[in-house]
Design a protein around this nucleic acid. Structure first.
Lengths: 385, 385
DNA sequence: GCCAGAATTGACAACGTTGTCCAGACGTTA
DNA sequence: TAACGTCTGGACAACGTTGTCAATTCTGGC
């Protein structure tokens, strides 16, 4: 696990994300620029070609070409008032001729704001996070900000690495789907004004805004639904117990069983990796033996998919309710009954909260819990076999 | 459509992405910092609190606190040699005490490289792009770079806006899934050394690296597969003709029909929006009438999903092959036969090419075409009804 | 034609970092 | 002890932009 602060020995630039010893470094196409060349800018502007490789015109170049002062160029570029049409035209021509584009790095340095926010999630390739990320992006766009995102791969160390790299880039705010359980490393950042909102799972050991789905309630509904359809032996396969939602959903499962006065055999509960092999063996274990479960509740979309495959291989029908909706769930036969959470809404809500903070809202950290929705499609309404 | 270069009247900062007139601006929590306050840094370091809101310690602060020079702090932070262990320890303590984190904006400005790349795609929420984005991210991570991504929503103006905003941030390279057909606006950027790789669709009007899937070949295989199973009247529903892959897949469709000596009734071909309603009505039109098609070839995953829904509502079986694989395609009954392209591999290939360029590879632009794979699952093997 | 006041313009100093280069401190050798 | 390297540390000037503020040019009214 990386330290939150730089060390000398073995210290790596926070953006040097590669863990391999390979000395992979970015280099621009021109190779390392000899320092003496840095003075090239002082040659007459006619010596500079628009297409000179690896060199970009600056406002100074534009100013020289247009025969105006540096600040005037800045004014034109930023649409500030106080420039005569004639001057503006000359500057515009120079800008076009040189292919100038303002260097936002310098702007950021000067202004102190980056108009960008960071999103750290588990895996962008997961169909649950795509819409969430897109929703955050849209809100950011509405506020004129860009989105930088990174996947933690459910690894706390990598999460921290990413978050700190984003902080070093001076993102204005962070939306985090936490992998780790201790976020005290964020304290100096938050104190320094980086707005931070956690999504899907609460922050660990610090007080911060959180937007959650109602995992407990959704899970309880799901299991109650199965019970209502006559099931007594119900299995639960969930994610690693380190993950908050997994625990909450397990709690919901137990609550529903408890409320119905049903005992829970511990062999009916499997928390762990969502890797297909593990889920498969867990499901098969629950479905074997003299008193197999007659229904399964799966803790997230990845688990559900694997369980569906397992059940497809069997003749005896087994009821199934999955947490998370997924595309085409209605086209499988029977349709898969799910507890749907609205990923896009999670993202939108979190991003809206973030920008409220950035706009100066000074309220205590809040926790928002979004409701889930049970969608019956057939698999959850199968009677016990 | 935005100009490629700044104008005064109505000019918007390239990162001011919102198209609405609302004056949405980022503001940090502390409100606008009065310029006079900028001198606060010269007060004694004991006056600064670690948790002072909205203010971040700089190397200068660390240096003052550790009683060393500025450059020494820089050396420690960057793990450069030439610092005694004792000095290093003092600096480390100051860093920790102040919660210092290097400001990468300043670093970027000084060094000229950002160690970040941009990815512009159509829609992050599309399950095809999630894995692609993740693959690009992984390669970037291996090279110590961060990924900034944006969705163009298939709008050329928005694509350009995004790309130029990324250029203003001085990303080192760009991976673009183009929405537009004219990328000459990128010429100055490429000339300035921004490595650029296009993915999924070729660049318009400029010469650049491209990584594609074999749309033509994949489509031809798909349709030939249907023909081999006895179909003579085959419909094709694809994306907008503006999109390169749509055209290529149509070409593949025609080629297969042609090679089999089959005529193509123009009512069997529908290119246009992939919005569900449109696809639905297109499919229903092809399936109606006295000589309906007996098989459908759908041009991408969104189309396929809608077509599957349409076919699920009908009693007469209709064969279907879809371009793009998707999760659970095997669990629908019958399983959906698809032409699979490897989105992750597209992303990996493109990113690898990009970093080759950044590492100084000086080859002419190249085009890579990745093969597709026909996966028979049942729906494509149905005989004509 | 002259002056006040407004409008335009540009010089300059930050922003926080890193590269260069020089000044001391220290240890070694003659 | 003097002369010589080597090692450490720091002063300083960039990087490209924007905020301040003063200088300059224009305008209109007399």
């Amino acid at each position: 696990m990386l330290d939150a602060t730089p060390r000398q020995s073995g210290y790596r630039h926070p953006t040097d994300l590669d863990a391999t010893p390979r000395p992979a470094r970015l280099r621009i196409g021109t190779g390392s620029r000899h320092p003496r060349e840095q003075d090239r800018r002082t040659v007459t502007d006619t010596a500079r070609s628009t297409t000179r490789y690896g060199t970009r015109p600056t406002m100074k170049d534009v100013a020289a070409r247009a025969g105006v002062g540096l600040k005037t160029v800045s004014r034109v570029v930023n649409g500030e008032p106080g420039v005569t049409p004639d001057t503006e035209r000359r500057v515009q021509e120079a800008i076009t001729a040189l292919g100038f584009r303002r260097n936002d790095s310098a702007r950021v340095l000067r202004k102190g704001r980056t108009a960008s926010i960071g999103l750290v999630l588990e895996d962008l390739a997961d169909p649950f996070y795509g819409p969430l990320s897109r929703a955050v992006e849209e809100v950011a766009r509405d506020h004129g900000a860009l989105l930088i995102n990174g996947s933690s791969a459910e690894d706390p160390a990598r999460e921290q690495e990413l978050v700190l790299a984003l902080c070093a880039r001076r993102v204005d705010g962070l939306v985090i789907i936490p992998a780790g359980t201790d976020h005290r490393y964020l304290e100096p950042e938050i104190a320094a004004g980086v707005a931070t909102v956690f999504v899907d799972r609460p922050a660990g050991e610090i007080d911060a805004d959180v937007v959650l789905s109602d995992s407990f309630g959704g899970a309880r509904d799901a299991v109650a639904h199965l019970i209502a359809h006559g099931h007594r032996r119900i299995g639960f396969i969930g994610d690693q117990p380190r993950i908050h939602t997994a625990i909450e959903r397990l709690r919901g499962y137990r609550a529903a069983m408890d409320e119905a006065g049903l005992p829970v055999d511990e062999s009916w509960v499997a928390l762990g990796s969502t890797a297909p092999e593990r889920v498969r063996s867990a499901a098969e274990a629950m479905l074997a033996g003299p008193a197999p479960v007659t229904a399964l509740f799966s803790g997230n979309n990845r688990v559900t998919v694997t369980v569906v495959r397992v059940l497809a291989d069997r003749s005896r029908p087994v009821a199934l309710v999955g947490f998370d909706d997924f595309e085409l769930a209605d086209l499988i036969n029977p349709g898969i009954t799910v507890v749907a959470q609205d990923a896009a809404r999670l993202g939108r809500t979190a991003a809206a909260l973030l920008f409220r903070r950035l706009d100066g809202a000074d309220e205590p950290p809040q926790q928002r819990v979004l409701p889930t929705r049970l969608i019956p499609r057939g698999s959850g309404e199968l009677p016990p076999a």
